[in-house]
Design a protein around this nucleic acid. Structure first.
Lengths: 237, 237
DNA sequence: TTTACACGTCAATGGCGTTGACGTAAGGTC
DNA sequence: GACCTTACGTCAACGCCATTGACGTGTAAA
């Protein structure tokens, strides 16, 4: 069997579907994002996507080898959205900080899609750009290569992991989400001090703190530690 | 339709299956964990689990309302396993460190369950015990309550987020996982220095570092930052 | 105008979770 | 031991899923 997928660049014969849609990689990814935004991650199937596009489901296999390839394309689109309009200030700490918060915020604004792609390596355009930028921030700041790489890895994984985690919680079915939230008061608020003294002693603080994401504080902790490493490693400024 | 599931406590008629197995909630959860451990995440389906138990797949619906309930039961088992045999040394930093690494490692050994359970608040026994322990470590170390709570939150979310993230990557179908790994060499190794100078300059380091989880280093960074906070906040020792 | 083939369509395969109906054997009662 | 109730294992079916090979049509190049 010869390859079914034709790379987007060398595509020339575009033929409308029965229902008049003219397909393209971009149209498919956009439609998929819209589908997920409107009906949740579980609404994303080849069959439904085909229906939303006005095409036979199997037509998608002319554009993506399988659903996994499609997922990667969607994930990369998200990474791109997160970086749109970002510019470096030259201060490594605030640059990393803004980059991290942007990734987190962007993924949270497309929670269902984030869940699907946050742990993938796409190797696509937007991803390589992000990698290059973050590595650039660190190396320009004077971190030696080996250290810059380790920090890059920890930083990126942390941003994506928190983003995926918070996105996943956001995209639970409303019933399950409310029930999970209620557990804090229903269970933790009622634990007796003799069996759970530390929870009992801090409960109001705990319940308040757990309502928001732990990411911003975790990010600042990481950046502080990195700053300490930098001065010790002999950086200046 | 009356409820199909009978709570485990009030179960009295145990009837062997055709192939001689006597089912129970515990046996099902254990078998599911074994299935995942032996044959990978994709081996966990109701039909295969039924086969592994020597029972008709639909028999499971006498014990769990649906697969989600089954997966939550499995996840709860995981929280317990992560803490089994853990004891405090009294040194807050190494206690937090071992707790974080345990959670991470335990979740990674059952990826499928970890993915589903890591962002849920169950409020069940094992979970409250873990919360109490971690808060205890921090408060005993002298952190004031408000700070202890913020650190607790960042620490736990980070451990669970990384665990879920790495577990998700692990539970990809083998084909996709290998492809993601291969991308590092196929794409990042071939980026030219004029468009991606930082990636080109650090590629061997990058490819090597990305093979492992970023969590241990991220955890150490967090602990270092916390230690700095503690001395500044006026703790002793 | 002709020709080649890209690509949308169709039909089929084998997997999945889940459900309603059914009968059998287990347990309680006498 | 006989009888009843019903829990629960089994069967068959439904509708979903991703994926694939064959087919034919319309497009674009020659």
């Amino acid at each position: 069997m010869s390859e079914r997928v034709v790379p987007e660049g060398s595509r020339q014969r575009r033929r409308p579907t029965k229902r008049g849609a003219v397909l393209s990689e971009q149209l498919i990814v956009d439609t998929a994002l819209r589908l997920v935004a409107q009906h949740g991650a579980e609404a994303l199937s080849v069959r439904r996507l085909g229906a939303a596009l006005g095409a036979d489901p199997s037509a998608l296999y002319r554009y993506f080898r399988n659903t996994d390839a499609l997922l990667l394309a969607i994930a990369d689109e998200l990474i791109g959205k997160a970086q749109d309009g970002w510019t470096a200030t030259g201060d490594w700490r605030s640059d990393l900080r803004s980059m991290g918060l942007r990734i987190h915020a962007c993924y949270l604004s497309h929670p269902q899609a984030a869940v699907l792609g946050a742990y993938r390596t796409t190797g696509r355009l937007h991803e390589t750009r992000a990698v290059e930028r973050i590595l650039g921030i660190l190396r320009t700041a004077g971190f030696p290569d080996a250290l810059a790489v380790r920090i890059y890895h920890a930083f990126v994984d942390q941003a994506l992991a928190f983003a995926a985690q918070d996105a996943a919680a956001l995209s639970l079915p409303p019933a399950a989400r409310e029930k999970d939230a209620a557990v804090w008061h229903a269970v933790y608020g009622k634990l007796p001090a003799d069996t759970h003294p530390h929870i009992a002693a801090t409960f109001p603080l705990l319940a308040a703190d757990m309502r928001d994401s732990g990411y911003p504080f975790a990010l600042d902790l990481m950046l502080s530690a990195v700053e300490a490493l930098r001065t010790r490693a002999g950086g200046g400024s």
